[in-house]
């Protein structure tokens, strides 16, 4: 198998690795809260500007099948970066099953089934305990199709 390796850098600081015409792109954004005149708030993903402790960083991971055959059994795994913690309910991905790990990727489960040891007791894992996010596609990715998943972390 011939591996073609290109690194694409855009405004949104991304890198792309191309292999066998299935590409993976990892992009980062600064997630800021916009307060409207009526006091309501929405999150906006912007070009990174002030990446300081307490700020949120959003990652978008895009799988692109540029080949001629469908790609099946697609699983995207992303360890929560060091010095950050996962923001609860922020992982998204259409048509995927999203699971998390609290043991550095040995096992994955839905949030309700994740437990950690705390002071000798088994307690429900919190978002900050997550070490990995995993997206499993329910369907194969057809040739020419792409899929984007995302999640947000907070800088400790």
């Amino acid at each position: 198998m011939i591996k073609k390796l290109t690194l694409a850098l855009s405004l949104a600081l991304m890198s792309t690795f191309v292999s066998a015409e299935v590409t993976l792109t990892n992009s980062m954004f600064e997630v800021v809260t916009i307060t409207a005149a009526d006091g309501s708030t929405t999150d906006q993903w912007q070009k990174p500007d002030k990446l300081v402790p307490g700020e949120r960083v959003g990652y978008q991971v895009e799988v692109n099948n540029q080949g001629t055959e469908p790609a099946a059994d697609i699983v995207i795994v992303n360890p929560i970066p060091e010095h950050t913690e996962y923001v609860q309910d922020s992982a998204k991905g259409l048509g995927t099953q999203i699971e998390f790990s609290v043991d550095n990727g040995k096992t994955f489960a839905l949030p309700a089934q994740l437990f950690v040891e705390q002071n000798g007791e088994r307690v429900q894992a919190q978002a900050a305990d997550y070490t990995q996010v995993r997206w499993k596609l329910n369907q194969p990715l057809a040739a020419g199709d792409s899929l984007t998943v995302q999640y947000i972390v907070k800088i400790k």
Partner: peptide, 17 residues
């Protein structure tokens, strides 16, 4: 987190074709 520290994120995709 200390200023200047690099925060690395590596995503992996696996698939069969």
């Amino acid at each position: 987190t200390d200023a200047g520290i690099s925060i690395e994120n590596t995503a992996t995709v696996s698939f069969t074709r």
